[in-house]
Design a protein around this nucleic acid. Structure first.
Lengths: 116, 116
DNA sequence: GTAAGGGTTCACACCGGCGTGAAGGTCAAG
DNA sequence: CTTGACCTTCACGCCGGTGTGAACCCTTAC
């Protein structure tokens, strides 16, 4: 299918799909006219990518994640990529830090509004 | 005092002080050579600005906040600027929303790490 | 032939506080 | 006069997923 079809099917913009290709997340075949030709299974891949983006992962981490998944289809593939595990932990740490930071900001803001 | 003195006194970089001037937060006098000339009371103002930045306020909101404070030195000046109150509430809302979003991201990430 | 509606590849805009040069003026000290 | 440590005003870089044109090619229908 062409890019606009996959876009409508997944609810992701064509621009985003091209972006995913730029990042090496989802590289479709090309037909004789140079048009991107997606397979039916790509819709599921897009869904996985969206989930990971929604989890706060950057495209570079997602790429490594997907590479892990591709090379380790059998069993718990995460064990095959210890670096990835560390990377995910790092992301989690950053999320937690940002969360704590936001809590602190919120506290200061409340102090300003009430006590100003 | 000159900019580097205020910078050292407050622990804020000279670049940041120039940035605050750009944003209209702290506009110092100039001496005959064009050098910024800060007054002693500016140190306290810088501290207030830092507090507000730490509370998640952007420079434009801080500017309005300071203008309010300047025009309403007597009494509870926040009442003089109902728009400002609304703006602070809006900022608080955005902080809360971002916080909820981060919590959701964190949840999804945990699901990915454990359940992948 | 041509208009319409796909597709393609750049490449800038965003958001924002500040780091970080670059190019050049000012001034006290040697 | 010169060195050096200040100061000044630009102005780009960051961080990154995506919106939004611009300029141009493919294909189908009239």
């Amino acid at each position: 299918m062409l890019i606009s079809e996959l876009a409508e099917l997944t609810g992701v913009s064509a621009r985003a799909l091209r972006h995913y290709e730029e990042c090496g997340l989802l590289v479709p075949a090309r037909n004789s006219s140079g048009y991107r030709e997606y397979s039916a299974s790509d819709a599921a891949l897009v869904a996985r990518i969206r989930t990971m983006i929604a989890a706060g992962l950057g495209t570079s981490v997602i790429r490594r994640y997907l590479d892990c998944a591709r090379t380790g289809d059998h069993g718990t593939f995460l064990e095959l990529c210890p670096d990835l595990r560390a990377e995910l932990d790092a992301v989690a740490g950053r999320l937690d830090a940002r969360q704590a930071e936001l809590r602190e900001q919120r506290r200061r803001l409340s102090a300003l509004v009430s006590g100003a």
